[in-house]
Measured scan of single mutants.
Amino acid sequence: DAPDEFRDPLMDTLMTDPVRLPSGTIMDRSIILRHLLNSPTDPFNRQTLTESMLEPVPELKEQIQAWMR
């Protein structure tokens, strides 16, 4: 099983494109984008959230890719 820090906190699946929300939570980009289609909010604190506020986490993405090899 993947380490917890590699798993999306909402869907508990392996992240492939991790992004940091303004709240500091790291999620998979595809999952948070799907959530934003229904509700333009951070799913953990209900603060306003837009796609432009998502910050890529390239170092975590590299760690996940290395773990998958």
Rank of each mutant, 00 (worst) to 15 (best):
D1N: 14
D1M: 14
D1H: 14
A2L: 13
A2T: 12
A2I: 15
P3S: 05
P3Q: 04
P3R: 06
P3A: 04
D4P: 15
D4S: 15
D4W: 15
D4A: 15
D4G: 14
E5L: 12
E5R: 14
E5T: 11
E5C: 13
E5I: 13
R7E: 02
R7W: 09
R7D: 03
R7N: 05
D8R: 03
D8Q: 01
D8M: 03
P9K: 07
P9F: 07
P9H: 06
L10W: 11
L10N: 02
L10K: 05
M11H: 10
D12M: 14
D12C: 15
D12S: 12
T13D: 05
T13N: 07
T13M: 08
T13G: 06
T13A: 06
L14E: 02
L14W: 05
L14N: 03
T16G: 07
D17Y: 06
V19I: 06
V19W: 06
L21G: 00
L21V: 02
L21D: 01
P22E: 01
P22R: 01
P22I: 04
P22A: 04
S23N: 07
S23T: 06
S23Y: 04
S23D: 07
T25P: 07
T25W: 15
T25R: 14
T25S: 09
I26M: 04
I26F: 04
I26D: 01
I26H: 03
I26G: 01
I26N: 02
M27I: 06
M27D: 03
D28W: 06
D28G: 01
D28A: 01
R29S: 07
S30I: 12
S30T: 12
S30G: 11
I31G: 04
I31S: 12
I32N: 00
I32Q: 00
L33R: 08
R34C: 13
R34I: 11
R34S: 12
R34D: 10
R34Q: 14
H35P: 00
H35V: 08
H35L: 12
H35F: 11
H35Q: 06
L36E: 00
L36G: 00
L37G: 10
L37I: 11
N38D: 12
N38Q: 13
N38Y: 14
N38L: 14
S39T: 12
S39G: 07
P40I: 07
T41F: 13
T41E: 08
T41W: 15
D42Y: 03
D42F: 04
D42N: 06
D42L: 02
P43Q: 02
P43H: 02
F44N: 03
F44G: 04
F44V: 05
F44T: 05
N45W: 05
N45V: 06
N45Q: 06
N45G: 09
R46E: 12
R46T: 10
R46Q: 15
Q47N: 10
Q47A: 12
Q47R: 10
Q47T: 15
Q47M: 12
T48D: 12
L49K: 00
L49R: 00
T50R: 09
T50V: 10
T50P: 03
T50Y: 13
T50W: 10
E51G: 07
S52A: 14
S52Y: 11
S52M: 10
S52G: 12
M53C: 06
M53I: 04
L54G: 00
L54F: 06
L54E: 00
L54I: 07
L54S: 00
E55D: 09
E55L: 10
P56W: 07
P56H: 07
P56L: 08
V57D: 07
V57E: 08
P58R: 09
P58I: 09
P58E: 10
P58M: 09
E59I: 10
E59M: 10
K61V: 08
K61F: 09
K61Q: 10
E62S: 12
E62A: 15
Q63T: 09
Q63W: 08
Q63L: 15
I64R: 00
I64S: 00
Q65V: 12
Q65G: 08
A66E: 14
A66I: 12
W67P: 02
W67L: 04
W67T: 02
W67A: 03
M68T: 09
M68A: 11
R69E: 14
R69S: 13
R69K: 14
